[in-house]
Design a binder for these strands. Structure first.
Length: 185
DNA sequence: AATATAGCCAACCGCCACTGT
DNA sequence: TACAGTGGCGGTTGGCTATAT
């Protein structure tokens, strides 16, 4: 599929950040024709993007039901629980967090949770901590309590943060909000 | 005030599974 | 059955922003 761009049209494929104009084109096109068949959608809409790029942009950013902003403590708990259960099955985890995308959850995990895990490991490296598989893919735990049991012996710092409701979350506002974009329609 | 460093996140890449012909 | 096209997923990266020095 995505094996190499080799014809003359592919030479014009745009990459990098999406512009507001491109966003509007994509939103309008999907509004009129629906989503799916992304390659032909990209061509028909006149976007110099791959179908994959259009799909990703729509699913992760432009969809009206995408929730932006802070991950709530409840969502953090759920992510921890589901990750303990399924490992890095981000899309599966995302299905249980309405409005959240797999990409967002993946980024959240990598930037926030893994950071804490690393710190915990560094902190305890002089102690008895053992190497841990953060994928947790083999774990069959099924509840938050189980997840806590699974993670907390190794990463107590993380669960302390949860318990105190002080898990560090910074605001992550967008340059323009989706309300702004949709209001332009 | 200028520069260096760290953190965050949008987007791309490569692989695999599914479907239609 | 084999092949090509497409969609979906997880991993990775590049650039922007915030913070520290």
């Amino acid at each position: 599929m995505d094996k190499r761009a080799c014809n003359s049209q592919d030479a014009e494929v745009r990459k990098g950040p999406w512009t507001l104009e491109e966003d509007l084109i994509l939103i309008n096109y999907i509004r009129n024709h629906g989503e799916g068949v992304w390659n032909s959608l990209a061509r028909s809409a006149g976007l110099k993007r791959t179908g994959k790029s259009c799909r990703l942009r729509w699913l992760n950013y432009l969809r009206p039901d995408v929730r932006r902003g802070n991950i709530t403590p409840e969502e953090q708990h759920l992510i921890m629980e589901l990750h303990a259960k399924w490992g890095n099955r981000w899309s599966k985890i995302a299905k249980h967090l309405p409005g959240r995308t797999d990409n967002e959850i993946k980024n959240f995990w990598r930037t926030r949770i893994q950071k804490h895990i690393k710190r915990a490991e560094t902190f305890s490296s002089t102690g008895q901590i053992t190497e841990h598989n953060d994928q947790a893919s083999t774990s069959q735990t099924a509840s938050f309590a189980d997840a806590a049991e699974f993670y907390s012996p190794t990463y107590p710092e993380i669960f302390e943060s949860f318990a105190g409701g002080s898990f560090p979350i910074e605001p992550s506002d967008n340059i323009w909000s989706m309300e702004d974009i949709w209001s332009l329609q």
